[in-house]
Amino acid sequence: MFNSARRYIALLALVLFSNCIRASTNDSILITQLLQKLDDLQIKENGIFPKGAFPSFRMYTPNKSRYKADVNPFFTGLVAFTLQHLMPDLSPSQQLQAKRIIERAKSVYPKFKNRKYPERNTYNFWPTDTVQIYPNGGWLNLFNKPQALADDLDDTVILLLAQNIDDSIANKVHDFMQLYRNGLKKKANNIVEKYQGIEAYSTWFGDKMPIELDVCVQANALYFVQYYHMPWSSTDSATLKLITNVIRDKEYINGANHLSPQYVRPSVVLYHFSRLMALKPIPELESLKASLVEETEKLLKDSDLFMDQVLLSTSLLRWGVQPPNLAPHKTKGLATLIED
């Protein structure tokens, strides 16, 4: 999951790499360099991070120069999942680079799989082999067991997509997802009142966890459903209703932190919507594409943050719109941008 307190170096390299593929067939050297950057970032031996992982870090608001290693599978799964999707567009040598990264990542996922009910095939944001909250969090780790997170929908679908699981597992997980929807046992209160009655997917697979509606998590859930060509459930339809209402009302522009507490920023919300729409057309979303493009172009024009510019440009490319070139005075060398 995205969070404003996390660095995502590998993700920036990955998104830049995706844009190179879409932007021009003459970017082969740059694509190879970005793949090599991803390879360099991937952990090669067990240590603070498990072998095969892509490192990510928490930044604390009171001291923004201090980072803590945040041991999670999300970015690793996201890199592997995205590389698999882009594989047909790579040259044979680049495919070998990507396959090495994907293969190394496989050893990471078991560390985060549900231990008590492995047959569920659900995953956690933090380790389950040795339960932790805020890994490397000092005194916070005194509360590892009583405050442990439940497994979540977002990590589960991303890691299952990264592993390219077979249809039978996907269908069982989809059945399990139906047990964690808004209104089944309790209602969400993290979202504006007019959406609180929509029986969409909740983020957490835990009876003690609050019901949380997050449109980015939900977009990933629908991507999972679409990818595996599963019949839509009533919860899938309700989730789509929530997303379409949010787009139609343009709530994601100023209310992204409430609509997507795990991802927070409008640019990231739009990135998720565009990824879902690029997989397979959904008529209800296609009818709103013009509005999405218009708002994305406005945000891109006003953005000074390079990561936002990349995410918004990627969204436009997925919708078949060529984004403007980033202003040279706002950019640095590629290596510096990836590390910033």
Rank of each mutant, 00 (worst) to 15 (best):
residue 217 V to L: 09
residue 201 Y to C: 05
residue 130 T to F: 05
residue 207 D to N: 15
residue 139 W to F: 12
residue 112 F to C: 01
residue 185 K to Q: 14
residue 165 I to F: 12
residue 237 S to C: 11
residue 107 S to L: 08
residue 128 T to G: 04
residue 194 K to I: 03
residue 117 Y to Q: 11
residue 98 A to Y: 09
residue 195 Y to D: 08
residue 163 Q to G: 05
residue 92 P to S: 10
residue 181 R to Q: 06
residue 208 K to D: 15
residue 213 L to I: 13
residue 133 I to Y: 05
residue 155 D to C: 01
residue 139 W to V: 04
residue 93 S to N: 15
residue 110 P to G: 01
residue 149 L to W: 13
residue 213 L to C: 00
residue 216 C to S: 15
residue 193 E to I: 00
residue 198 I to A: 08
residue 191 I to A: 03
residue 153 L to Y: 02
residue 179 L to N: 14
residue 154 D to L: 05
residue 118 P to T: 06
residue 183 G to Q: 10
residue 170 A to N: 03
residue 173 V to F: 03
residue 214 D to V: 00
residue 152 D to M: 03
residue 229 H to G: 06
residue 193 E to D: 13
residue 201 Y to K: 11
residue 229 H to R: 15
residue 237 S to D: 15
residue 181 R to G: 05
residue 203 T to M: 13
residue 133 I to C: 07
residue 115 R to Y: 01
residue 200 A to Y: 03
residue 232 W to F: 13
residue 121 N to L: 05
residue 187 K to C: 07
residue 144 N to F: 02
residue 193 E to T: 05
residue 211 I to N: 03
residue 149 L to S: 11
residue 185 K to T: 12
residue 128 T to F: 01
residue 231 P to K: 14
residue 162 A to W: 13
residue 224 F to A: 12
residue 170 A to F: 09
residue 230 M to S: 14
residue 122 T to P: 01
residue 218 Q to C: 07
residue 104 R to F: 15
residue 219 A to N: 13
residue 148 A to D: 12
residue 168 S to M: 09
residue 131 V to I: 12
residue 214 D to S: 13
residue 207 D to W: 06
residue 121 N to Y: 09
residue 145 K to Q: 14
residue 159 L to T: 04
residue 124 N to I: 00
residue 174 H to V: 01
residue 100 R to D: 15
residue 163 Q to L: 15
